[in-house]
Simulated scan of single mutants.
Amino acid sequence: MKRIVLLTVAERFQLSGIGLTLAPDFPVQDGWKNLSEKVLVVAPGGSEFKAQAQLNMAHFNFGNTPTSAQRERTWRVVVSLVDVEKANVPIGSQILVSPETHRAVLGGGALDSDAV
């Protein structure tokens, strides 16, 4: 199956009940529906494995008086890997998804140069 780079991991957080949550996150596209997909994780050294990912809309609470920049980030799409440990996804790893998921998360079309 053709896969496209959705994100390069800048940070990751092991959260109980959620899994390994990855950054960056994404703006919520119109008509967003949470989804689950088997993704390909490619580490900077070239090793790779498949993992079940949840792509869910999440609410970020910035307190009583969020700045305008924080208000824009209140609702985001967050990628979490189910049953994956933080040590298995080093910073710089790439997460590859189906073209359909790429479009759902980022909108628009995917570049052929990003496909694997």
Rank of each mutant, 00 (worst) to 15 (best):
K2Y: 10
R3E: 05
I4Q: 13
V5M: 03
V5E: 00
T8D: 00
V9Y: 04
E11H: 10
R12M: 02
Q14P: 03
Q14A: 10
S16L: 14
G19V: 09
L20Q: 04
P27I: 09
Q29W: 05
D30C: 03
D30T: 11
G31P: 00
G31H: 00
G31M: 02
L35F: 09
E37N: 07
V41A: 03
G45S: 14
F49D: 00
A51V: 01
A53R: 00
L55D: 02
M57N: 08
M57V: 14
M57F: 06
M57Q: 13
H59T: 15
F60I: 12
F60M: 12
N61I: 09
T65F: 14
T67W: 02
A69P: 01
Q70M: 06
W75F: 14
V77R: 03
V78A: 10
V79C: 14
V79G: 04
L81H: 05
D83H: 12
E85S: 13
A87W: 15
V89A: 02
I91S: 05
I95A: 04
I95H: 02
L96N: 07
L96R: 14
L96H: 13
S98F: 07
H102Q: 07
A104I: 12
V105M: 03
V105P: 04
V105E: 02
L111H: 08
D112V: 09
S113K: 10
D114S: 10
